[in-house]
Design a protein around this nucleic acid. Sequence first.
DNA 1: ATGACGGTGTGGCACCGA
Length: 266
Amino acid sequence: MKLATWNVNSLAVRLPQLLDWLAGQPPEAPVDALVLQETKLTDDKFPHAELAAAGWRAAWFGQKTYNGVALLVREGLGEATDVVRNIPGFDDGQARVIAGTVGAGDAALRVIGAYFPNGQEPDSEKFAYKMRWQDALHDWVQGELARHPRLVLMGDFNVAPEDRDVHDPVAWAGQIHCTPEERAQFQRLLALGLVDAFRLFEQPPKSWSWWDYRNLAFRKNQGLRIDHILVSPALAPRVTACTIDKQPRRNERPSDHAPVIVQLAD
DNA sequence: ATGACGGTGTGGCACCGA
């Protein structure tokens, strides 16, 4: 089973690139399910027909202008079941979470796709919201883990967990995505037993999942690793690869994020 | 310290993202 997460920064703009990327997956090991962030579409505008025509079943949860998430499952694996939109019990006007069960029987996976709040800057109201949101996510994921031992939490976490996830740790010290509070929240998720799949493997130094549109940041490889795939303890031994695919960032009019992919043994 | 780039909205710029 291969899973992916991608912040597309407007699905209206990026749908052709998404379809190209999906169609370009290796036939012997295609992506089976993926989550998207920042679709920026109200639910009535979600391109489910185009995705269905390309062989993908979708569940989606969006709003106008901002945020918006989706869970796509390759035809043949059926449809995501027990779909949950946003964090149960956490009153939130922003569409940031979609979860569903993918596959059936012993092979079923609980997949949670999340678009963590940006937080703007420390000490702001948005930062406080980010902290509250992460508290709620943590507590809900804890329960989900108990119900679903085979669980994957992936998405745009908007946190660079360590200095090696930052192109210039000195310049970014204490800045949004790198504050001790955000990093502590990330560690709290790991304390649930979740494992950062990317760090299960030796990786190229200066591996990022996001590059600023400005300042030729991609060409200079100045970025952050803020998109993550966390797997439950039961799945961790089954992870055989985790990579960032920089290729879509080279497109014309790319998203500022690259997809992250994880491969799980059956 | 600021803004750079890109997306959205009902726009002539502001707001937001990271």
